Simulated scan of single mutants.
Amino acid sequence: MKRTISAVLAAALLVVSTSSAIADCTDPASPDVNWRRCYLDGRDLRNVNLQGAMLRDATFLRAKLSGADLTGVDAYRAKFFSADLTGAKLDDARLIEADLTRAVLTDASLAGADLRNARFIDANLRNADFTGARVQGTHFRNADLTGATWVDGRTCAESSIGQCN
């Protein structure tokens, strides 16, 4: 009986040790970094390459991400409250239920991004590119979409607040 229990425990430890790495919030910014559930509030991440990073449930309160490459990140339920994402590249990013309240995304690219049920409340989205993005259930209350390229390729008119006119 003890041998059976020991064998089961050894097998379980082997499975755990060979599974994907646990997030290390002190890891430097790099492509494919695992920052799941990390607090990165106020970080200066300007112009970093985070392509394909795991950012699920991470928080970036007032973080500086201008010019960052976030192509293909998984940022499900991530929080970017008041973050600066000016000129950031979020193409094909998974931002389902992400919260970008009061974030600045001027000139950002979100082409092909999955933004379902995301929140862009009071966000600055001037000249952002949403070409091909999925926006079902997305909240744009008081968001400035002036000059943004909408999902269908048309340009939003001046004074497009809360919706693309």
Rank of each mutant, 00 (worst) to 15 (best):
K2H: 12
K2F: 13
T4C: 12
S6M: 14
S6V: 14
L9Y: 08
V16Q: 10
V16N: 12
S17V: 07
S17R: 05
T18W: 11
T18M: 14
I22C: 11
I22D: 10
D24V: 12
C25E: 15
S30V: 05
P31I: 03
N34Q: 10
W35H: 03
W35G: 00
W35E: 00
R37V: 04
Y39V: 10
R43D: 10
R43P: 03
L45G: 00
V48N: 03
N49W: 06
N49H: 07
G52H: 09
A53W: 04
M54P: 03
L55N: 02
A63N: 02
K64N: 12
L65S: 02
G67W: 06
A68I: 02
T71F: 09
G72S: 13
R77E: 13
A78L: 13
F81I: 08
S82W: 09
A83V: 02
A83P: 01
D84G: 04
T86C: 07
L90K: 00
D92C: 10
D92L: 14
R94L: 15
L95T: 02
I96K: 15
A98G: 11
D99R: 13
T101D: 08
R102D: 13
L105E: 03
L105H: 04
L105G: 01
A108R: 00
S109D: 11
S109Q: 09
L110Q: 01
A111S: 15
A111L: 10
D114H: 15
R119G: 05
F120C: 02
I121D: 13
A123K: 05
R126H: 04
R126W: 03
A128C: 09
A128L: 04
D129V: 05
F130C: 05
G132E: 03
A133P: 01
V135G: 01
Q136C: 12
G137I: 04
G137D: 07
H139Y: 11
R141M: 10
N142P: 08
D144Q: 12
T146H: 04
T149W: 01
R154I: 15
A157S: 14
S159V: 10
S160T: 07
C164F: 04
N165D: 15
